[in-house]
Write a protein that binds this DNA or RNA. Sequence first.
DNA 1: TCTGGGGTCCTAGGACCC
DNA 2: TCTGGGGTCCTAGGACCC
Length: 410
Amino acid sequence: MKTIFHVDMDAFFVSVEELLDPSLKGKPVVVGGRPDQRGVVSAASYAVRKFGVHSAMPLRTAYKLCPQAVFLDGHPHRYREYSDQAYAVLQRFSPRVEMASIDEAYLDMTGTGRLHGPPLAAAHKLHEAVKRETGLNCSIGIGASRLIAKVASDAAKPNGVLFVLPGAEARWLAPLEVRKIPGIGKVTEKRLHDLGIRRVGDLARLDEAFLDAQFGLWGRAMAGKARGEDAGSWFDGAIGEEEAPKSISHEHTYDQDTADRERLYSTLARLCQMVGRRLREHGLFTRTVQLKLRYQDFGTITRAHTLAHATRLDTDLHRAARALFDANWSGMPVRLLGVQASSFEARQGQMSLLDQEQEERWTKALSAADQVRDRFGESAVSLARGLKGGFRERVHENPAGLPGKGPRKK
DNA sequence: TCTGGGGTCCTAGGACCC
DNA sequence: TCTGGGGTCCTAGGACCC
């Protein structure tokens, strides 16, 4: 029987902001940007949640609900630092730690009893250590699977510890709303509600043939989850296994929709630079370049192109992205542009010796440019295309610079 | 309500090959 | 000509997560 901890920081971004500026404590605080900006709430303090504000809500909506709230752009680098500090604490409790995102982690605590005591005692020790060394509150869920640990940490919030005893999983889950099961989102919840299924217990009782007919394979997986099982789901698998990224992307939403071709080209160039840079940092070469276009009405298309040879050069990415854009842009005002790289290879595509030498020179030059950007800011170096009318935009775009809370690779 | 940015995984269809 | 079956690669879209 395994013992899994799920450690989840409470209102993480907001809590870090409170440490940086204690006068924020207890106030309604929203991290994510200014209320007149396009964007959504990244984190909401408990005080502002009372007004109905929650994460992923549009900032303008949050403002309407709570105009007196403090709206902050946030400090992504500081969040990273605090996350690293918390990670260092967790590592002392188990060598098998996995950051699932910037503010949550799984620990495999199986067999650590002699060192840390029984699960609840170990969790309290861990909870205290995190508080002492980072100043931050967290909640800890304990279970025999990742799934149970995850759902338990949510139930333990805020600032609590909850242990779901092995064998009691299904009974404990039964009264919870189906939405509490990770993987059941808005759409699946609606479909389940339409079928009269509201609680996890209702889901667990359904027969497999019915679930199969309604949801296919996903139906069986859901039924398994309803009984507290990870088996066969993406939740399954050892904790702490390093995984290489499968895609790298950057996108930008304009403050105001634009049909200015030069401006769009300039954004495209910058996005390709950012993607190329991260490819070089990871030592990866990409074969597939994808363009994302979102129009005024939120209608969104993606168009992909697979290259003959894997690359990590900005110029190659840009050529492909630009061709996709030219072939697919309707000419209507654009709300969002995005560039994604995927289908990674560890080596560059086959090419002649001469091309290879040239590629190496380019990569060196680009890596040097990456470093200059680090020291002097994003606008210090750029592709010729990016330069054209691009400065103003580069300086002022995305002032929050929030990285989001995507999965983190340790 | 007027909807970010960074990811993962899944499905489904078409091209192509044997 | 009236037609299968499997495998792989590629593309597009969508649900979901933080």
